[in-house]
Design a protein around this nucleic acid. Sequence first.
DNA 1: CTAGGAACTTAGTAGTAGTAAA
DNA 2: TTTACTACTACTAAGTTCCTAG
Length: 596
Amino acid sequence: MDLLRFLEHPSFLLFRRFSHANIDRSLNRRRKLLKQSHWWKNYSPESTSTVKWTTLSHHGVIFPPPYSPHKIPIIYEGNPIILKPHQEEAATLWASVIGTQWETKETFRKNFERSFLETLGKRHKIKSLDKCDFSQIVEYLEKEKENKKNRTAEEKRAEKEEKLALYKKKGYAVVDGVKEKILNFVVEPPGLFRGRGDHPKAGLIKRRIMPEDVTINIGEDSKIPKCPVRGHKWGNIVHNHTVTWLAYYKDPILPNSFKYVWLAATSKMKGLNDMLKYEKARKLKEFIDKARESYWSKIKSRILLDRQLGSALYLIDKLALRVGNEKSNEEADTVGCCSLRVEHIKFEEDNKITLDFLAKDCMRYYNTIQIDPEVYKNLQDFTKNKDLDDDLFDLIRSNTLNDYLKSLMEGLSSKVFRTFNASIRLQEQLAIFNEKNLQLEDKMQFFIKANKEVALLCNHQKTVPKNFDNQLERINSQITKKKSKIENLENHAKELRKKKRLAKSENVKKRITTNIKNTKKMIEKVKDDIEKLETRIEMKEDTKNIALETSKINYIDPRIVVSWCKKNKVPLDKVYSKSLKEKFKWAMNTEPDWVF
DNA sequence: CTAGGAACTTAGTAGTAGTAAA
DNA sequence: TTTACTACTACTAAGTTCCTAG
């Protein structure tokens, strides 16, 4: 039953044994809350219009604490040098990177050095990073870390409380009367830019953001938040109803982009968009036959441009590739479908191709796959008379492809194919499952395997944890222990049987028989444990470099997951963390027989 | 018609807090 | 009680998409 109706139902009221006044107050409160939070029950098309909010109030953004100098010198050619605070801050940022992978990265080092020397000024005696000895600062940082680790429980509690209080005070916005969490209400602190892969700007000092850098978006009737840094003021105040951001500031590294302050995933603004994303993917389900027919006719077209369009979409559909926009040379050299170059594709026997390129986040996409001969031939054609660094699809770009998609279905774009195929893939994999009597662990194992298929499709990877081998080793030693335990138990059983044979009284025999039975039971249990540990190892090994969460968060329609869990009596907590359950609260009431 | 701006989604990793094992 | 893992969350980088100005 609808929760609201239930709350109003006489049996509920009776059950609570509230006084009437209390009931009224409580109901009103709840009704208000329900009306506010159950947006998915009665969302209307206009909620997706260009007006994103009517009233909006919040507390602006807050800033990381100012730098407090430690006055520890760096040693330069044998001389200790105490730097000015802002210079010392830069030096300390570098010190915090020493011993990590970043320290030895060529670009990172070069860029930091340039940034650092600039901070010091031309006439400073420090001329080279290589000659700087940061070890005293490193030592200091280590001590600080140690101190932090050794805080008393009381201190930790106080800190936690303080954090919570800040969150309560500043961490939410009120949008059209609904209180919503903010995703990132603290601006990014200064740091060294950790661009991924071979990013040309990695290592640059990311400067401190000041209130003057920040534009606040807030309702006309709302109180303008007080600037939290004394002596400073907000850069700008706007009242833009057509956007969802609460504030933005210029990206301190990339001159043409911004950092935005948004509501959390639990908010209506984000949740509704998320739901609509999946609805769009479901709409593609209706159009997919038509779309595939269309790109197949293009693949066979005599017009080169069409052959490129058709073949590109074929790859996007079949391999769930990203569309691949062009990138400037201020960014790492990564590609997607439309930006593939000749060097990224190899033609093998039997209509197989190998794609080998760096994708988003410099994750390597490496896949050998058999494709249809028509596409194989097309792709081969596209590489003719080209250099290795020429575009494979030289006549099209992401927008060409997206324009074409618009002609197939309203609102269709390339990324919808990824969502569509990922969700479909999970649903298909889960549909294979029909053994209802499995243990929960086995069900979970099955789910993880299905999830893994999606992650593989989308090429979602993660680095293998540092001490992964140790972890396996530990489980293995547990198995060894349990195996020797079984041996002992078996010996014990053997002896019991011997005793039973020699026993005279019936009573003793009976007692020994129960003992034997119990021992056997124990053996079974330990064997079961071993089996569980073994599958745990297997699963761990199997997914050690695969990121399962990414697809769960971004690509898999949560309704597929919820319905499967309900149908198979798997508690949702097994699949979704607390925050994911909140993010997907709009999908929590999905019926067991729901289909994507 | 194209380049780049603006806004929003998707992505992996670092660090932390809570929990299990020793 | 300490140590070691594990499971999350916080963080922020890196994509896509759509739009507008020239």
